[in-house]
Design a protein around this nucleic acid. Structure first.
Lengths: 130, 130
DNA sequence: CATAATTAGGACGTACTATGTCCTATATGG
DNA sequence: CCATATAGGACATAGTACGTCCTAATTATG
């Protein structure tokens, strides 16, 4: 699976926050609105904060807000924040995982495909999806 | 992961058979040449036969051969033979898996991306990779 | 200051899928 | 008949996806 459920949740979350930009939204509120299990969402929010896509404020009346304009957030950046680098194939990431990579004529195909996919994910911004 | 190890093995297998077209090659021979665990390869070969990419002959001196010209075998067909339909995302396959699909603005992006990937996999033929 | 509301982080559990192995049945050339 | 193959199912193992829970740390508000 290229896009996990976690990534899906992360995108929904960012989309929600893009619509509610004035005030911080709490994890509980986002979970309710976007149909995401609350304690799972908490983990996802942590990652989005660490990747500097979101800003969090603690304590009562705290919550999460976008750290940048929706037009400056690509699907790729959200995806990489929660999943790490996009992985088409074991081979295409870690050379040493494939015993034949030197002589393998398929290898360049995977590399090329991964590039294309990343380019597409980069083009799609949160602003564009609103 | 979009491309599993099983698919990788399947492609190696078909590539090997494309180079040895005159005579049937046994599972043991292919496994040795392509660094694939033998009993795992047996399963993969079964699927390739059922999908009519390969022809098998049983008994002594039996083995596997391509059912079509290498130019008529795409990476997509090999991939679908072993993995089933390419799956980018749960959402993009089974509508009902996503509670929000009706209102979800990301959904069309996944569908489009999947189409593109399949188009690329279709273009790449075994003949082209030799 | 006390308390309720909130995020931060780690440990843990469960279920599914990828990756294989193994055993038995079946076919076939010599 | 027997050695060599494929066919197919049951089973085993490891890794990842998906999610829960508990304990801190922080802060607005009464």
């Amino acid at each position: 699976m290229l896009i996990t459920r976690e990534t899906d949740y992360a995108i929904r979350t960012v989309l929600y926050l893009a619509r509610e930009r004035e005030r911080p939204a709490s994890a509980a509120e986002i979970a309710r609105a976007m149909h995401i299990p609350k304690s799972f969402l908490a983990k996802i929010l942590q990652r989005l904060v660490r990747s500097q896509l979101l800003i969090s404020t603690r304590g009562a009346a705290g919550g999460f807000q976008l750290a940048r304009k929706p037009s400056a957030i690509s699907l790729l950046s959200v995806m990489e924040a929660v999943q790490g680098p996009t992985c088409i194939n074991v081979c295409a990431i870690q050379e040493n995982k494939c015993a034949l990579s030197a002589s393998c004529t398929v290898h360049p195909v995977w590399v090329e495909m991964r590039k294309d996919i990343e380019k597409q994910l980069q083009k799609q911004t949160i602003a564009g999806l609103l």
